[in-house]
Design a protein around this nucleic acid. Structure first.
Length: 188
DNA sequence: TGCACGATGAAC
DNA sequence: TTCATCGTGCAC
């Protein structure tokens, strides 16, 4: 029997090159326990945000109260409020101090997930994730990522990131990854 | 202390 | 294409 808590992604998974982590997060499970119910979604879309030099990354503003967690140890959550109403979920990556993270943009519902999960705001809402979870350890028991029961093969599409036109040349970098053909990708 | 602006989603 | 809605970062 498959229990996601017995297959958590280890700290070392996050403490790697951010682009590799973003790519490798596809197909992995995002698990969130709310009121004792384990909600599970399969990651089908993610974007890499490389650090202070990446003009699209929040860490490009430097260390501030909001971005401090991005500069912290890998394997923790960075959750922020966007447009005053939606929450977006990231996982901190790379070496501590690198200011890098991966934004989760879409999930395929697997278990106990109600509502749509295509888009970072929607998936955060469906999984019960908000700003109070920023800084949360992703090796905890109520909010973590895990290897799926079986590693199925899928094709990965790479593209520019969504909604970062303000980031000049960084807007065109191939830092968005998604599962080819998945109907749950936010913007095919 | 004030203000412009989002790593969005929904309505029109 | 327009708008809701508020925390954040930076100008004054």
């Amino acid at each position: 029997m498959y229990l996601p808590a017995q297959h958590k992604l280890p700290r070392e998974f996050y403490a790697r090159d951010t682009v590799a982590v973003a790519r490798d997060l596809l197909g992995k499970y995002l698990v969130r326990v709310v009121d004792g119910i384990e909600r599970i979604g399969r990651i089908v879309e993610a974007e890499a945000y490389l650090g202070p030099h990446d003009l699209a990354a929040h860490s490009s503003k430097g260390r501030t109260r909001r971005t401090e967690v991005m500069f912290g140890p890998p394997g923790h959550a960075y959750v922020y409020l966007i447009y005053g109403m939606h929450h977006c979920t990231n996982v901190v990556t790379g070496r501590e101090g690198s200011g890098s993270a991966v934004l989760l943009r879409a999930l395929e519902p697997v278990q106990n997930v109600a509502g749509r999960t295509s888009g970072c705001g929607l998936l955060s809402k469906a999984m019960g994730i908000d700003r109070s979870l920023t800084g949360h350890d992703l090796l905890s028991d109520d909010f973590f990522l895990a290897y799926p029961p079986a590693d199925e093969a899928f094709e990965v599409i790479v593209s520019r990131r969504v909604g970062v036109d303000y980031a000049r040349e960084w807007a065109d970098k191939p830092l968005r990854f998604y599962v080819a053909g998945s109907p749950f990708v936010s913007r095919p």
